[in-house]
Design a protein around this nucleic acid. Structure first.
Lengths: 205, 205
DNA sequence: AAAGTAAGTAAACGTTTGTTTACTTTTAAA
DNA sequence: TTTAAAAGTAAACAAACGTTTACTTACTTT
């Protein structure tokens, strides 16, 4: 029997991401994708059940999987809070700034009902994405360094600014002067850390 | 001559938002919209040049216009920093939590190249959205209360968490216990304020 | 009351959509 | 070397797409 061509599957995924990033999810069609990948539309249906299946697998497996791996590289839940946060922020920035297609689909994941639902179901059925961050935060809640808030609230406070900064990095890409640099990222990270940490020695009653 | 029916225009806009919110931007079609609004497709083209024109006007005029107005209600750039921030955060929360369709399209504005481009062009040509917030931050930079960072960086640090919290509010809507309440919003706002403000009396060298 | 004109409709335009049918090619195992 | 079977292709399917044509309705103005 003839084996599946892995190159063709990889081409489908990367070209789909490219179209979504450049023209938007609403302008991705199976026929456009097939033509751009130089294959027959039928070939896509050998690897994916239908368009929704393709989009969901692209989002969950290709994009979020690689994103999680990149963010957690050289990160350990037992790290000190400041060290860990800076590692996570810098990993996020250096991965996403070189992967605009991935960032685009992650953004769509917050808008599209289809992708949003897929994300929540995956989180429930197969365990949370970014589980080591979960552990990391729990440890620092236990020591009393950061307040005991729901994990989703922690995420909003600690990581939504870095994602917004990446969006701004891309918005400024064609301008002469870059304002979102690694130095700015670290400054912002320190500001976020300062906000969340309980500096017990400073309590004034 | 026969006047335009304002009700029909309003119906087009509100039903379009509803479809985008429930089924996604990628599933909004002119024919579906016309049928849902009980009008002929041609009627939409009396009021809008084409589909892109409809989407852009929906985003810029209907959604961002109303959003800006709601967020700035009873806000004054001359307010104290903590007071102003809390006002902006609570206004944002109370407006968006009752306007899921608006929130959905705002999220799409960060993903879709069409809407993103429209937003940037409008900001350049007709002056920034949320100009009073600009002024507000400049005042508190001048007094030295907050660091002098680019406005986009301020925005990421000060307002991206509240937008993320609204997204989480909607994600948790069908669960028995609500975790995103006005109280949580205020707690988070205080954490963000604590991070950004230069507490000169606490400097330890 | 009549005229004039924009608003609005029903139906259809040519394209493109997601997907499938009928067929050919490729390749590992017999 | 033959063969079974999945991979892959070209072409086409009905349905839905964005948009327009030809026509009717409704309302302001004269």
């Amino acid at each position: 029997m003839r084996p599946k061509s892995l190159e063709k599957e990889a081409a489908i995924r990367s070209i789909a991401l490219q179209i979504i990033s450049e023209e938007g999810l609403e302008n991705l069609s199976m026929q456009k994708l097939a033509k751009a990948a130089n294959i027959s539309p039928r070939t896509i249906y050998i690897k994916y059940e239908n368009k929704e299946d393709l989009l969901v697998k692209l989002f969950i497996e290709e994009v979020l999987g690689a994103y999680e791996k990149a963010v957690l590289e050289n990160f350990d839940p037992k790290m000190g809070f400041t060290e860990g946060m800076k590692k996570l922020w810098l990993n996020t920035f250096s991965y996403l700034k070189n992967n605009k297609p991935a960032f685009s689909l992650i953004q769509y994941g917050k808008s599209s009902p289809l992708l949003n639902k897929a994300f929540q179901e995956k989180n429930i059925r197969q365990g949370e994405f970014f589980a080591p961050i979960h552990t990391f935060l729990k440890i620092h809640v236990k020591t009393g360094l950061i307040p005991d808030l729901p994990h989703d609230v922690h995420r909003a406070l600690l990581f939504s600014p870095i994602q917004d900064l990446v969006a701004e990095y891309f918005d400024h890409l064609d301008r002469p002067v870059q304002i979102i640099t690694e130095e700015v990222i670290l400054t912002c990270c320190e500001i976020v850390i300062k906000g969340i940490t309980n500096q017990k020695n400073n309590e004034q009653h």
